[in-house]
């Protein structure tokens, strides 16, 4: 099954933030599933294909850290971006945070978020299909591709293609 869009799992307990980010990503060709609790996130991940997850750390109930660990355990190839407002948060302190793709501080401007999402998705694709970085770069660096959207499109195709190949084998 080929997906037209990149599937983003957005987890944050702030409804207003959840809603606005979701809408802004959606109009930029992302498929966003937004949930406000950690346990819901795990449920969504079980039932939907996810390409990149954006996690808040401080949430009622299941914390972002737990969600990160659980997601990585179930989907080792999935890249996860931590988006936190915690001012004194130090990812170096705990080993678990090595599993995250990167950390973004709230408030984060959309361009940075988009860039990080593309890079994270690139990594996801590489993880999933064990493609070396330079191969991906060479595939993406065709002169015809100019915009981020085109790059994503190509990545998506690559992802789908590889999946099909694997499925066939």
């Amino acid at each position: 099954m080929v997906h037209e869009k990149i599937n983003i799992l957005l987890v944050d307990d702030e409804e207003a933030l959840l809603d606005s980010i979701k809408r802004r990503l959606q109009i930029r060709e992302f498929h966003v599933i937004a949930v406000n609790r950690g346990d819901k996130a795990l449920e969504v991940a079980r039932n939907n294909p996810i390409d990149v997850a954006i996690l808040d750390l401080k949430m009622p109930g299941m914390s972002g850290k737990d969600v990160l660990v659980q997601l990585k355990k179930a989907y080792p190839w999935l890249e996860i971006v931590i988006l936190t407002g915690h001012g004194s948060f130090d990812p170096e302190k705990e080993k678990v945070y090595d599993q995250a793709y990167t950390f973004l501080a709230k408030p984060c401007d959309l361009q940075t978020l988009l860039h990080v999402l593309v890079e994270a998705y690139k990594k996801t694709v590489m993880n999933k299909h064990k493609i070396a970085l330079q191969d991906v770069e060479s595939i993406l660096k065709t002169p015809t591709m100019k915009s981020a959207r085109e790059v994503l499109q190509k990545l998506k195709e690559l992802d789908a293609l590889s999946s099909n190949n694997m499925g066939g084998a």
Binding site: L17, S20, G87
Partner: peptide, 22 residues
């Protein structure tokens, strides 16, 4: 306090930034 304050302030700031962008 500072850590907690940052978090509590950054969340509304993130909302403001995001809503403005929207």
């Amino acid at each position: 306090l500072a850590g907690g304050v940052a978090h509590e302030i950054n969340n509304p700031l993130a909302i403001i930034a995001s809503e403005a962008g929207l």
